[in-house]
Amino acid sequence: MGKAQDNYLHDLAASRRGYAINRLCGSLKNAENRRRFSQDEAAYCDAHGLSPEQRKAILDRDWVAMLDLGGSIFYTFKLAVLDDRSMQYLGGVFTEMSAEEFAAVMRSGGRRFG
């Protein structure tokens, strides 16, 4: 799994770069699509035209790589939910904390900078 950046700017370039990955993840809001994805994840990725790197990130659940490849947290979270993962879990991945540590930091007012 890749190392998270300090922050992610999801600008127009990232949006274009991540279009296929975001379209796939966004499609998971539909129950039939979730069933199809769960049945054959690789085929579902292929049907959505992911790059080889995006396909690998999805199949490996490499959350950091998904964002590096233009994925938006708002879309990739739909895949996380399919895997019974929480936003606190993803926050922990991106901050190199456990989900519990991340939740505790958020409850105490968030990470302090500087």
Results as ranks from 00 to 15, higher is better:
Y44M: 06
A104R: 15
R85F: 05
N30Y: 09
D11N: 12
P52K: 00
T76K: 00
N22E: 07
C25W: 08
R107E: 15
L90G: 03
I58G: 11
S72P: 00
G18K: 07
R61L: 06
L24E: 02
A57W: 02
D40T: 11
M87C: 09
R36N: 13
C25R: 09
E53Q: 15
R36H: 14
A104Y: 14
V81W: 02
R111P: 00
C45A: 03
G71P: 10
S108G: 15
A65N: 12
M66G: 13
G91Q: 04
E101D: 15
L28E: 00
R61S: 05
S51C: 06
T76E: 04
D46H: 11
H48R: 00
R17D: 03
Y8V: 11
M66W: 08
E32L: 02
E53Y: 12
S86K: 06
L28V: 03
K78W: 05
R23N: 11
M87V: 05
F102C: 01
G92H: 02
N22G: 02
A65G: 13
C25Q: 01
S38Y: 03
N22V: 06
Q39F: 15
K29F: 01
L90N: 01
V81P: 06
S108T: 09
F37S: 00
Y89N: 07
S38V: 00
S51A: 10
L82E: 10
V93E: 06
L67E: 01
A47P: 01
M66Q: 10
S72D: 12
G71M: 09
G70D: 00
E100A: 13
A4M: 07
R34D: 04
D62G: 15
A43V: 06
S15Y: 14
F74W: 09
R17L: 10
H48D: 04
R34K: 12
I21M: 02
